[in-house]
Design a protein around this nucleic acid. Structure first.
Lengths: 341, 341
DNA sequence: TTGTAGGCGTTATCAA
DNA sequence: TTGATAACGCCTACAA
């Protein structure tokens, strides 16, 4: 049986109260008593009993919150599943988890949510932060007030967040290239459509893709690398011009949304049987095109884990006082074909 | 705050003891009292507090055991990680988890382990069962004695096990075909090497592969489907003959072990740049051949989850009294390329 | 058939 | 600076 506070107290010839004070670094303990207790703990190794802890702290239920942005919508349900699951695991410890989904990409709205959460007394926040200085400042403010923050899906620079949980986008881009390389002939021409060069995650996917391309002996060439802002109309126009200028095009890599436009343009040019598409995420428009045989592979980012992991990290840190092992937790690069959707 | 036994007792005008008796279906409760208590529980919904439960039952620590077979070796460390992780999640509830790895494929040895575990008083067993009647009978015996059993990795027919956790092998075979279809030209010839036609999981992989092949418009043809008993020597001989008889061979699908022999034969025939190999699992010989560019894809089966999930299921069932949602839990069909290993 | 008391390990409060 | 005590919710044993 593990060491308990009572036993330590007995061994150190003090009361349980004193041991408690030492363990929690509370004031009003003589150096002598403190040393004796610490020595015993050091030698025998004390691990607090979580069940007992939970029983006591149950009254002041720990509140966590998961804050999602709307452009994140495709995954919301999978992320929620992850959160739910983690919540079920921890609710016996008196943890409450609330989920907030905002409807705009407006930083103001996210700030309002954070204000509300602070008022409600959250102890931990898992957030998909909107990239802007206001949010950075607000997050740091919350952290100073003792609220712990984990970012997920998109990271944000300049905050003291505990850690980040999300995909290694560069790696994902590399994998995308490997897939492409495997499914088109040597020396093929491929087009690349990037969501936005201003978004770091898409940047990184491109970087990975291009890095592998440069190092590859496959002779693949990119005919163009263009932004589509996740928009179908832009994708459509881009692919139309790809096809017009390159009748021998063999592949297209799409880092973000707007695949439907890609598919439509290919069909219109009657190139849909010749051009193979690789995309990201497992969302309805992608699934549709996979069924049509146009998208051959899509790369998922394990939204379930993106929901579950941050909650677990907050729980470990706040309740068990175990800090996260790393600062960045990568979720898998989840390759899918039609059959494995 | 949730409903507690004391509150129920108060509401029903009985003592906590009586409520406890009702909840646990213990004898010595008058019908009247029982009905009153049940009515309240029914109306207000009682969920026992796990922390409190754990605190009390801590003395008689629940023992679980995970029993692995040796041919399962490649994954042992990942499975262990999953088990460890689940254990860490539950140890605060007084659960102990022990891991047993046997060294032979001998049913006798597995039986001995089961005997030992029974003597030690296990309450739950997660097992990779050796397929034989003796084991079936023994498992059913254990179940009758109140020990709950979950199979993982390989299922076994004829037992009352709670459920099975493992890969959907037929689906994996289908995915393997999709991959093959994507990386070799239309109308290509491909070879298939199956571990053993007597092993259900490899059977199923083959079934999936062939099913997709029949339905496919890609025109792929199998030049041969042969067993290699996971042996490199046999693989070598098979591939040598594949190559000799089919200089235009484009792909090989290997359902099990023995990939090194495949690679050696291809190199010997100088076909390693022309023939693309697809394999299963993420093990050292596979990784080596992926680095050499011979294996293009390998399909993992998420051993981590195969370790974690059974422990979670046993915990939910035995401690929380929540039966598993399904009888079969499929772990992912985890497609990997070199970069995503 | 029913009720009561004690204890699991921790924390918080009050008294010494 | 310390120690004692009650409380969290549940279970077991024993008393009524």
């Amino acid at each position: 049986m593990a060491l308990t506070i009572s036993k330590i107290a007995e061994l150190a010839n003090v009361s349980r109260g004193t041991v408690d004070r030492v363990i929690h670094n509370r004031p009003n303990v003589s150096k002598k008593a403190k040393d004796r207790v610490l020595k015993i703990i050091d030698e025998l190794g004390y691990t607090p009993n979580l069940a007992a802890k939970a029983l006591v702290s149950k009254n002041k239920g720990l509140l966590f919150s998961v804050v999602m942005a709307p452009d994140f919508n495709p995954f919301v349900s999978d992320v929620k599943k992850g959160v739910e699951n983690a919540y079920n695991e921890y609710k016996s410890f008196g943890v409450e988890v609330d989920i907030e989904v905002i409807n705009t990409l407006n930083a103001e709205e996210q700030l309002k949510i954070l204000d509300k959460l602070e008022r409600q007394g959250v102890r931990g926040i898992a957030i998909v932060p909107i990239a802007c200085d206001l949010i950075v400042q607000r997050i740091n403010q919350l952290i100073e007030k003792g609220i712990d923050v984990v970012t997920f899906n998109s990271d944000i620079k300049g905050t003291n967040r505990l850690c980040f949980v999300g995909q290694d986008n560069e790696k994902a881009g590399k994998v995308a290239f490997e897939l492409m390389e495997n499914i088109v002939p040597k020396d093929s021409k491929v087009g690349v459509i990037i969501s936005s060069l201003n978004l770091e995650c898409h940047q990184n996917r491109l970087t990975g893709f291009v890095a592998k391309l440069s190092a590859s002996k496959s002779g693949l060439k990119t005919v163009a690398i263009n932004e589509n802002q996740d928009k179908d109309e832009l994708s459509y126009d881009l692919v139309m011009s790809f096809c017009k200028n390159n009748p021998d095009l063999k592949g297209i890599y799409v880092t973000g949304g707007g695949v439907t436009g890609v598919g439509n343009a290919l069909k219109e040019c009657n190139m849909h049987n010749k051009v193979k598409v690789i995309s990201h995420d497992i969302v309805a428009p992608v699934i549709k095109l996979m069924k049509e045989g146009i998208i051959k592979f899509t790369i998922g980012q394990d939204p379930y884990t993106q929901g579950a992991q941050p909650v677990k990290i907050l729980f470990d840190y706040i309740f068990k006082k175990i800090p996260p092992e790393k600062e960045v937790f990568y979720t898998g690069v989840d390759i899918r074909t039609l059959e494995s959707l």
